[in-house]
Design a protein around this nucleic acid. Structure first.
Length: 181
DNA sequence: CGATTTTGACCGGCGC
DNA sequence: GCGCCGGTCAAAATCG
């Protein structure tokens, strides 16, 4: 059983939250259900014993060892969404704008607020209704110059109480909530 | 009035 | 190719 310390460990490795934010102080993460891990051979949904699920992908480059945060997958209603994969059969995905190296961190919470206060400043740059989801997915980018970290937020169609937040990339600066710098 | 959001257009990858 | 789909752009609207 993975605990919240591991969750925060991954989150801090990713630079998702500033250091002063503790697991219990995350405003929008309240007690909630734990979703069952889907029976997918190459993926693992880490159960944090609370509302959070961290989705990891088994890394083929690591000989089947469970990958670190850079192997995070994106989740969607009904399971895990194959947005990017390390499998050799889909290597071609690597080309193009998105860099496979960009680490991803994805978790699911039950929350009324879509955007939890993670200590960074974000600017919305898009919104889209994706197939099979009633609710729109929102796209955000870190407002800091030269920082290309993005995140997207969406609610599950089958349970609108659930919010999935996916971070992509690593900040090139320290968090700045109330001021730039 | 600068920063941010809104929202349709646009674009590139992928499957047929 | 062509069309679908997810992601991004950007101009106008809105916000603080």
């Amino acid at each position: 059983m993975i605990d919240e310390n591991l969750f925060m460990s991954y989150a801090s490795q990713m630079g998702i939250f500033p250091s002063h934010i503790s697991f219990s102080s995350l405003p929008s993460i309240s007690a909630a259900d734990v979703i069952a891990a889907p029976t997918l051979s190459d993926r693992l949904l880490m159960d944090f014993g609370g509302p959070q699920i961290l989705s990891l992908q088994r890394s083929s480059a690591n000989h089947g060892a469970w990958g670190g945060i850079s192997d995070c997958m994106n989740m969607k209603s009904g399971g895990v969404d194959d947005l990017v994969t390390n499998s050799t059969s889909k290597r071609k995905i690597i080309k193009g704008r998105r860099n496979l190296r960009d680490p991803r961190f994805c978790f699911k919470t039950m929350s009324d607020v879509d955007i939890l206060d993670d200590g960074y400043k974000w600017r919305k740059y898009g919104q889209k209704i994706v197939k099979n989801t009633l609710l729109p997915r929102s796209y955000y980018r870190c407002t800091r110059d030269n920082c290309s970290v993005k995140k997207r937020v969406e609610r599950l169609a089958d349970d609108p109480r659930m919010v999935i937040t996916t971070y992509e990339g690593r900040h090139v600066h320290s968090p700045s909530h109330h001021h730039q710098d």
